[in-house]
């Protein structure tokens, strides 16, 4: 079934199907890192998290305060970013924001809407919104979106590298179907797919990237329009859990670089065991 789904080209691992944590044992070198050390007791306080998506509904009880909202609109010379009072066009961004809030209750949440007021979102809008968010120096950017348009790839790659070196962590969803899309394929971002386990706090490292981590993404309770909730499935909802964890880690270890942060996620993943000692 899986091979039939995979389009021509290299096999992509975009989520965990038919396998559980016991099927993905990973032995790592390094100093053991516990969840308690990494984010225990941390709430994300002071960490600025930006949701680049469809917008976030204002005053949603699950999401709480959104510190700032912007929208990408089409200007005379291309997409421009401006402050907005509009909420969420369809609920997806609100869902992501709610998961981040649930995971990191005291983080600061911001929203950049990259779906145009009219018509579908485009790679250009996504690029403009992401670039702007990186320029603002947010600590964490949640991007439960990607583009399949190859002409944006190199610009996206350069942006992701820029974010990596300035300590803005981009947490990006793998596409829900086995197609090439970006920026989740880049090593400079933290890419997330979903697993089917019931534990809402379980996340796993994937020993066969490009997707690096699997988090809960099946039948997840998410905030939705009108102040309510629904249940939904997809990599989109696994990603904000990892973004929230990143916020908690950074609130406890504020000097951490992006590569350190990824290493902490790696070493404290449920399926990763740190081997004692090293080879002389």
């Amino acid at each position: 079934m899986e091979s039939a789904l995979t389009e021509r080209g290299p096999t992509l691992t975009w989520r965990l199907i038919g396998r559980g944590p016991d099927d993905l044992p990973v032995t790592a070198d390094g100093e053991p890192v516990t969840a308690q050390w990494a984010w225990g007791g941390a709430t994300g306080r002071g960490v600025r998290v930006c949701v680049v998506d469809s917008g976030v509904e204002r005053d949603h009880p699950v999401v709480g305060q959104v510190q700032g909202s912007w929208v990408v609109v089409t200007g005379d010379d291309g997409p421009v970013v401006e402050p907005t009072e509009t909420g969420d066009a369809c609920g997806h961004g609100t869902a992501c924001a709610g998961i981040i809030r649930r995971t990191a209750p005291e983080c600061e949440l911001y929203s950049v809407r990259v779906l145009s007021e009219r018509g579908s979102g485009s790679g250009a809008m996504l690029l403009a919104g992401l670039r702007w968010a990186i320029q603002q120096g947010f600590d964490v950017i949640n991007l439960s979106l990607s583009t399949t348009k190859l002409r944006f790839t190199e610009e996206l790659r350069a942006l992701a590298d820029e974010a990596f070196f300035q300590r803005t962590v981009i947490v990006a969803s793998a596409h829900n179907t086995p197609v090439e899309s970006f920026p989740w394929r880049f090593a400079s971002v933290i890419s997330v797919g979903s697993h089917r386990e019931a534990d809402p706090e379980l996340y796993l490292y994937n020993p066969s990237p490009p997707v690096e981590f699997f988090a809960p993404g099946q039948d997840v309770s998410v905030a939705w329009l009108g102040g309510g909730t629904i249940r939904s499935t997809g990599n989109s909802f696994a990603t904000p859990y990892i973004a929230g964890l990143c916020a908690r880690i950074l609130s406890k270890h504020s000097r951490m670089t992006t590569f350190q942060l990824k290493n902490v996620l790696y070493l404290s993943a449920a399926n990763v065991r740190v081997a004692p000692g090293g080879t002389p």
């Binding site: 579908s120 979106l145 179907t177 309510g228 909730t229 499935t233």
Partner: peptide, 16 residues
């Protein structure tokens, strides 16, 4: 907008 599939449940409990 996203070009991605989506699965949602409990819609009837969501008045909006």
């Amino acid at each position: 907008a996203s070009g991605e599939p989506m699965v949602v449940n409990d819609l009837s409990k969501n008045t909006a």
